[in-house]
């Protein structure tokens, strides 16, 4: 290898390493756990990688050893012993230990099965092409309500999810908190998670569900209990009508036939609920940042952004009116 190419490689190495390490953190990484279940899985991963690394080094070391010539050959008996211990006994014992460890971890990854865990609050999440319907139960005198594409959870408390699917199989996975669990039409699967740190995390659909599968994600906001209670009260009370032009156009153009803004429009359950929409991180279930421009783009032609989206294009609506509707949605706090 020439000096030049060596320099090239050593110059690119820090970039390559930082790129690889960048995958270890972030809002959608199992390597940066923010929940008990994710931490258990992360621990299992680290143990397996380190254990596998040692075994790999030993095998490669043995290979290199055997490739070096001019050495005294092993006796048949010695080689037989090496095969019996290194090739049979060692893998057998190690695999047995790993199996015991992995199976032993299972109750902590699926803790709601244990009788010691109190019955957690169940939040109902339904996967639909290509968004998430989320229904919170009534709790502590606050009425239940429906929202979409953004899940809010209290930190340090166990929460259970009833997972359903309305059309095809989806999969519920919050890499930073734990999971995953498939959502199957006609079935209710239960998953329980315990967030341990506040923050905003991203959860992609983890089962191919159609053309916009990659554009189907939701945000998870883990909050302190007090802030969570405030948020729940606000959600449950809905949004008071303002009589704005955008609100009038929202109803006039038929948006309210599919989307609810609780307290303002009649109940509609076909599309995602939009009450307090402006609080959400994204538009189109994790597809675009929640800005007025992006909301306008989405209303004009949803399929251009999310191929196969059920919502029809509203490109016949004048630009100014779309802007007014976007303005109305941006005010839903």
């Amino acid at each position: 290898m020439t000096n030049c190419s060596k320099r090239k490689i050593s110059g690119h190495l820090p970039i390559a390493v930082s790129l690889v390490l960048a995958g270890c953190t972030g809002s959608q990484s199992t390597l940066d756990p923010a929940g008990q279940e994710a931490a258990e899985v992360h621990h299992l991963f680290v143990v397996m990688v380190i254990g596998g690394g040692f075994i790999w080094l030993a095998v490669i070391g043995l290979l290199l050893h055997s490739c070096r010539g001019q050495r005294q050959t092993w006796s048949e008996e010695g080689a037989g012993r090496l095969i019996a211990w290194g090739g049979v006994a060692f893998p057998g014992v190690v695999l047995f230990a790993l199996l015991v460890y992995a199976v032993w971890l299972m109750p902590s990854v699926r803790p709601w099965l244990a009788r010691t865990v109190p019955e957690p609050t169940q939040i109902e999440v339904t996967g639909e092409q290509f968004w998430w319907r989320i229904r919170y139960p009534a709790e502590d005198g606050v009425a239940g309500f429906e929202t979409s594409n953004e899940l809010r959870l209290p930190v340090g408390e166990r929460v259970a999810f009833s997972l359903r699917a309305a059309d095809v199989i989806h999969s519920f996975w919050i890499p930073s908190l734990g999971g995953k669990m498939d959502m199957i039409p006609g079935r209710t699967n239960v998953l329980s998670l315990l967030p341990t740190r506040t923050g905003v995390f991203k959860a992609p659909c983890a089962e191919f569900c159609g053309t916009s599968h990659t554009y189907m994600a939701f945000s998870v906001v883990v909050m302190e209990r007090e802030a969570y209670d405030d948020w729940r009260r606000k959600q449950a009370s809905g949004h008071q009508p303002e009589g704005s032009e955008g609100e009038r156009l929202f109803i006039h153009h038929g948006c309210a036939a599919c989307h609810s803004v609780r307290g303002t429009t009649p109940v509609a359950a076909l599309g995602p609920d939009l009450t307090h929409f402006a609080e959400r991180e994204t538009v189109g279930a994790g597809t675009l940042a929640n800005t007025r421009e992006n909301v306008g783009r989405f209303i004009r032609d949803p399929s251009a952004i999310k191929p196969g989206a059920q919502m029809p294009a509203f490109d016949m609506v004048p630009q100014g009116e779309i802007a007014a509707i976007s303005e109305f949605l941006a005010g839903l706090r």
């Binding site: 695999l95 199976v103 299972m106």
Partner: peptide
């Protein structure tokens, strides 16, 4: 027989550690 012995042990591990039926 050795292989089968180990395999039966492997099958038995989840039986010992399993906690309950999953709903």
């Amino acid at each position: 027989s050795g292989l089968s012995f180990v395999a039966v042990l492997f099958v038995a591990v989840p039986l010992v550690l399993i906690e309950a039926c999953q709903p």
